[in-house]
Design a protein around this nucleic acid. Structure first.
Lengths: 242, 242
DNA sequence: CGAAGGTTTGACATTAGTCAACTCCGGTGG
DNA sequence: CCACCGGAGTTGACTAATGTCAAACCTTCG
């Protein structure tokens, strides 16, 4: 059965109003409950799957990182997500994949056929729930990304991106203020709906303002998390704030 | 069981590359297989549920339209979707709703508790598949919206919005060239990540260019579908085209 | 050492946002 | 019945943010 149980069932109260506080993109959590499966290693820039490929498997990242993206007919690219170790990718495709999954570096994934999944789901309610939850998280992440690319300034976009990475680190027990960026500026730009120049300039601005340190383009140290949060929040952009 | 079966299971071929052609936003299809449930009528501007409400029900729109949106702490608003009759809303929330669902006009919905859903899913594989498919469509729609707000110009955004409505009409058997907009300019602007002024100007431009007719701000007639598609596609924006 | 790819920086162009005025329409009440 | 009012939409002038183009700079890798 599809595990959508457990939420309390009461009538909606049409009164209260609880706007969400700034949730981060990249909200996904490690996917638990799947083991076995075939290991596959993909080199940097190789694809685990591409748009249009039959959706035969889902994958769990074991080491390395994947860049999940779509390309438009004219070549523009939108990065949808970055998959970290523990993340499950490929869920939600019905017949064919609607995205590409490219390794940003040499990456190891574990592959599970949809048959595996179905079988496991058949006799394991908790696993079902985990699957449902994973899809929900994808949806939440996608919606968060919509908000980011649609309604935030370049400063806010980059700041909230860094904060999201920081929170992900925190959840995984690594230092929240030492970020290693496993993706290129181009990936970041295409994720946030900016150009690489704007991303680069924004990083530089943050560095000059003492918010971050930057080494070798890839190692970010957050010096002033408080200020970074301000920059991400929207009150700091100069427009928008009441 | 969770119905994620039926896709052919073969090894990925890492060679082929099939970029998607312009898929539209608002891809969702009427949800089949649920009947019964309590009827609820909400007046224009009233909410079916709000951010933070416990996720107790899902809803199927029977008449009228809903505007699904999120608000940021500082008041900015991102419209995520417009729900039409036959659409299911509220799926994907785990504990609490992450979005608001507001009626753009007097609207009738049918309410189902998650218990209803679970029960039905328990002994009906096809229904399970429908649920999974509905969530996948939400995800696809959210991703399409990311592409639209992230990488398209104002012209492209409005054009693809109109095209999406047109296709939706076509799928539902109504005229693809006679669109009734059940939402305000403000809703459209917050959907596309634009201001109402820009939306208005773009409509005006389309009208002057003979692409559409516009009556009473609410009735759009597509006069030149071909050109509208061009405008939406990206090749017509003046930048981006190789 | 040289080439290639990624990154940074600068000067400039352009898009879309901002602010403000005006119009249009529907509803309400004298 | 008509005048007024308010909300939504339109239009215009101006501004600011971000994209564009071009060049220089680093690293890495052969």
């Amino acid at each position: 059965m599809l595990a959508i149980a457990y939420a309390p069932e009461r009538q909606e109260t049409p009164t209260r109003h609880t706007p969400h506080t700034a949730s981060d993109g990249l909200v996904k959590r490690p996917f638990e409950g799947l083991d076995g499966g075939a290991v596959r290693v993909v080199n940097a820039k190789d694809h685990v799957f591409r748009e249009g490929d039959p959706a035969s498997h889902v994958y769990i990242v074991e080491a390395g990182h994947l860049c999940i993206y779509r390309v438009l007919p004219d070549g523009r690219r939108q990065v949808m997500d970055f998959a970290y170790p523990g993340d499950i990718v490929g869920l939600g495709a019905i017949e064919a994949h609607g995205t590409n999954a490219q390794a940003t570096e040499r990456t190891r994934v574990r592959c599970f056929t949809l048959g595996d999944l179905r079988e496991k789901a058949h006799d394991n309610g908790a696993f079902c729930m985990a699957l449902y939850s994973a899809m929900s998280q994808e949806l939440v992440a996608a919606r968060e990304l919509v908000v980011t690319v649609g309604h935030r300034t370049a400063t806010e976009k980059v700041a909230s991106f860094l904060l999201a990475l920081s929170r992900r680190n925190a959840r995984r027990g690594t230092s929240p203020n030492e970020l290693v960026l496993p993706m290129t500026r181009s990936d970041i730009a295409d994720f946030l709906g900016l150009t690489i120049e704007t991303v680069s300039r924004t990083f530089t601005k943050f560095r000059h303002d003492g918010v971050i340190d930057l080494e070798q383009c890839v190692l970010v140290t957050i010096r002033d998390p408080r200020k970074l949060a301000d920059l991400a929040g929207g009150t700091a952009s100069g427009k928008w704030n009441a």
